[in-house]
Design a protein around this nucleic acid. Structure first.
Lengths: 151, 151
DNA sequence: GTCAAGTTTAGAATAATTTTAATTTAAATG
DNA sequence: CATTTAAATTAAAATTATTCTAAACTTGAC
C-alpha cells in the first residue's frame, strides 16, 4: 500500500536530502558526524520505533554503515539527553529507546517482550496524587501489560 | 517511637514465632528451608519495601544470615512466581522487587533512583484502549517520574 | 535411618553496558 | 587552504547485574 501522502513525503526528502536530519543534530548542539548522521537517518526516517542499542547496531550493519557498538550506545544516550529520543523502561536488563516523542503510552507483551504505542489521547488519568514536597512531575508512564487471553 | 500497636504486633509474633511466614511458604508450595525462611522474614516483616537482590543480600549479611547471592536471586524469582512479590521495572539495569502486593503505583525519583508507593485509590485511569486482539490486560503500571522543582 | 528430589553454593559464564586510551575527524583559526 | 584543537570514534578491556553449572547439602517421605 502506497498513498499520495507517502509520495509527498518521499518527494520532500528527495528534494532536500537529509537537511531535516542535519537540522535536528545542529539544533541539539551535536556535530553532524558521519556516524551520527547515519544513525539519525536510521532512527528517524522509519516512523515510530522502539529499539535497543544492539538492534540499531544490526540495522546499521544491514545498511552498510560501519559504526561501532560503543558509538551506538554513545549516540543513543546523546540523542536521549538532547531530547530526540525517549527511553522506555519495561525490561530490566535491556534499554529501549523510542523515536516517538509525542505524548503516548505503551502496551507491553509480557510473553514476547514486544512493545507497541498507545496514542496519548487513548489514556486519561483522572485522579493523581500531588507530587512529593519540592518535586515536580516530569513524566507519567503508563505501561499496560498484556498476555494471551488463555493463560 | 513505640506504640501500643507495635507492642501487640511484637507480642503476636512472639506468640507464634514465624508461623505466618511458614504458612506463606507452604501456601506457595515452597519448602521452608533455613535460607528461604530467613529471607522471607527480612522481606515481609519490615513493612512495604522495594529492593534489589544486592540490597536483600546485604540485609541478610547484616542480620547474620549466611546466604549466597545466587540463592537470593533464586528466592526472589521463586517468590515472584509464587505471587508473594511484585517486580517493578523503573531502572533498566537493576531489578526491584516490591513486597507490597496490593493495587498501587509508584513515584520514581529520577535523580536518586528512589521509589515510593502511591496507594491504588490515589490513581484513577478513566480512559484506556481495548487490549490488542486475543490479549488480556494482566496489569497496568503507572510510574510518576518526579524531580526537584528547580531543574 | 535411607533415599530421591529439591536446595544451596562457589565459582565460572554470559549479556548489556561503560570505560580507556589511542586514533581520527570536524570545525575554528590563521 | 593548512594548522590546530577539541570532540568523536574505536577496539579492546573492564564492569555490573544476573544466570548457569555441577558438586555438596537438606528436606520430607517411607
Amino acid at each position: 500500500m502506497y498513498t499520495a501522502r507517502d509520495a509527498r513525503q518521499i518527494a520532500r526528502q528527495d528534494a532536500r536530502p537529509y537537511s531535516h536530519i542535519l537540522d535536528k543534530l545542529r539544533g541539539a548542539g551535536l556535530r553532524p558526524t558521519r556516524q551520527r548522521m547515519a544513525l539519525a537517518k536510521l532512527l528517524f526516517e522509519g516512523g515510530d520505533r522502539h529499539l535497543t542499542a544492539e538492534m540499531l547496531h544490526a540495522d546499521a550493519q544491514a545498511a552498510n554503515v560501519r559504526v561501532s557498538l560503543a558509538t551506538v550506545y554513545n549516540t543513543l544516550h546523546q540523542f536521549h539527553r538532547a531530547g530526540l529520543l525517549r527511553e522506555i523502561v519495561v525490561d530490566s536488563q535491556r534499554s529501549y529507546f523510542d523515536t516517538n516523542m509525542s505524548d503516548h503510552h505503551h502496551f507491553y507483551f509480557d510473553r514476547t517482550g514486544d512493545l507497541t504505542d498507545i496514542p496519548g489521547d487513548q489514556v486519561a488519568i483522572s485522579v493523581l496524587p500531588p507530587a512529593p514536597e519540592g518535586m515536580a512531575v516530569s513524566r507519567i508512564d503508563v505501561v499496560v501489560r498484556v498476555r494471551p487471553q488463555d493463560d
